[in-house]
């Protein structure tokens, strides 16, 4: 796992929201009761990793309004959904207004993808995850 570069302490942070925990299916929970204590501990540790803070930068595409402040810190354990929510708030978009958020100038991540995974795979050379956005679909 690559470590996160130090973020500028003056960079504001996107507020964290708790990730909704799906209930566990009975079939799975029944299996978990028989585990060794070592396995139970290991599972708890990987299910709840210690978050790092990474930097995201918002970039307006086409005619989308730019943000006055475009760079933020965010915890890696956050879901991409919270990035989108935060951006919608900053842009003051109404419920019905479309917003397309792209990573890598190409794809729209699912809302439940973790910031960690996107950052690991798509950060730029400076360790920044660039999120492009547009009010219309920008890439086919």
């Amino acid at each position: 796992m690559s470590s996160s570069p130090p973020t500028d302490p003056s960079t504001p942070q996107i507020p964290s929201a708790p990730s909704p925990q799906l209930p566990i299916a009975m079939s799975t929970s029944a299996l978990l009761t028989n585990l060794s204590s070592e396995a139970t501990r290991a599972l708890a540790a990987v299910a709840n990793p210690t978050p790092q803070k990474v930097t995201v930068k918002f970039r307006a595409l086409t005619s989308a309004p730019a943000l006055a402040k475009d760079t933020y810190k965010i915890k890696t354990t956050q879901r991409f959904e919270n990035v989108v929510k935060f951006l919608r708030d900053q842009l003051d978009l109404g419920d019905g207004q479309g917003l397309y958020t792209y990573i890598g100038w190409s794809f729209i991540p699912a809302l439940d993808e973790s910031v960690q995974g996107l950052w690991e795979c798509f950060k730029d050379g400076n360790g920044i995850l660039v999120v492009c956005y547009s009010l219309q679909s920008a890439f086919g």
Binding site: L32, L43, V46, A47, E113, S114, G117, C121
Partner: peptide, 19 residues
């Protein structure tokens, strides 16, 4: 360059995507 992989943690919503 990299193989796209996702690893699902049992009884958790955590999915690991790493290059």
């Amino acid at each position: 360059k990299f193989i796209p992989c996702r690893i699902y943690i049992p009884s958790s919503t955590r999915v690991i995507q790493a290059p």
